[in-house]
Amino acid sequence: MTGRATGLLGALVTVGVLLGAWWLAVAAGASPFVLPSPAAVGEAFVALVRDPATWREAGVTAVEVVGGFGLALGAGLVVGVALGRLRWLERAARPALVAFQVVPKVALVPIFVLWFGFGPGSKIVLAALLAFLPITMNVLLGVRSVDPGHRDVLRELGASRWATLRSLDLPTAAPAVLTGAETAVVFAVIGAVVGEFLGGSAGLGHLVVVAMNALDTPRMFAAILLLTLLGVVLHGTVAGARRVLVPWHTSAGP
């Protein structure tokens, strides 16, 4: 059996076991308000997917996630390269980075709503904020991990700064950057959804809140499932980029 087929089978078994446990819990008498049956959630999911309004909400969330992630990627690349190349700047910026790391960014949502309104703006900012650090830290790490022997080769050949960046720094940093991006895209989903929970009138996160207020637990579960699928698709896209962008790296698989 090929590795891919084994992997697929394993995934199916895992899903089967989880569904079985879920079904058993329901059969054992869990209240449908607390834990609806898989069938009820499935029904709600189908209804949700059939409703065009759902896709509008999903579109809103997707735009927030992708927008926030894009901002974080751009900023993270610039800041990460700068901090990686300029040691004094990194030393100067370190306290700020630590503060940035420990501040509970979700607590900033009210401020963002105040500044950027109830629309997608405040969610994009929160998503970007959550995604920024994993990207920056990985870019910094990537830029630092340049092999001195490789640097010697280009120095000996008299390569310009630009040529060195293109032929050495970027390819060296790429695998780490992609690792950061994989984490970051998941964080961006969290940022967007939390933003929608706390101060929004649109998006899948808002859909979850509406279902909760209506005590429609199956619909709530179905909306969460949809959110998970969105996360899976985005994460899969970034992971797929690895195979295209750094096929030479061992992390890209065979």
């Binding site: 092999d147 022997g149 010697d152 080769v153 000996e156 008299g158 390819p171 030479w248 790296h249």
Partner: peptide
């Protein structure tokens, strides 16, 4: 760099770029 332009070097390690 111009002064070293005529100089080529084979390093002790191959130092090939894996990408």
């Amino acid at each position: 760099p111009a002064a070293f332009a005529p100089v080529g070097m084979v390093f002790q390690d191959p130092n090939l770029f894996p990408w």
